[in-house]
């Protein structure tokens, strides 16, 4: 009987974990993309500061209220500015940031093409 109880307990706890997991996945994904503003070089997910802990609670609350990932990002950038996101949006302030690697890739490719392929032929 004791053994049966153990099995029931284990199955039960596994089920609870499963239903909680999905919300937790989104939560950790969001908090990993949020910069902890008062600790340098750490995401909210990694930090244990007062600020980060409150922010984690807020993300939880907003998820329960039915906010999606994008809405939470918008909400927080409105309060704290773009800096809070690790993945900045494409706008006039950041277009250079996004385009530069592509530009470098193209220029580098052109140089390689010139030096190695066109020269050979």
């Amino acid at each position: 009987m004791k053994f049966l109880n153990y099995i029931i307990f284990i199955i039960f706890s596994l089920n609870i974990n499963h239903s909680l997991a999905q919300n937790d996945d989104i939560k950790s994904e969001i908090t990993k993309n949020l910069r902890c503003l008062i600790c340098q070089g750490q995401s909210v997910h990694d930090s244990d500061s007062e600020f980060a802990n409150s922010l984690k609670l807020l993300v939880d609350k907003k998820l329960n209220e039915g906010f999606n990932e994008k809405q939470i990002y918008n909400y927080l950038t409105e309060k704290y500015g773009e800096w809070i996101l690790y993945d900045p949006e494409f706008n006039e302030n950041t277009y250079f940031l996004w385009i530069l690697p592509i530009l470098m890739f193209l220029i580098g490719g052109a140089i390689i093409l010139r030096v190695f392929i066109i020269k050979k032929s």
Binding site: S54, L57, K61, K79
Partner: peptide, 13 residues
């Protein structure tokens, strides 16, 4: 008590 209101105001600490 949990610091959520401060975040809603956009506070740091």
């Amino acid at each position: 008590k949990n610091g959520i209101l401060a975040i809603e105001w956009g506070a740091y600490g």
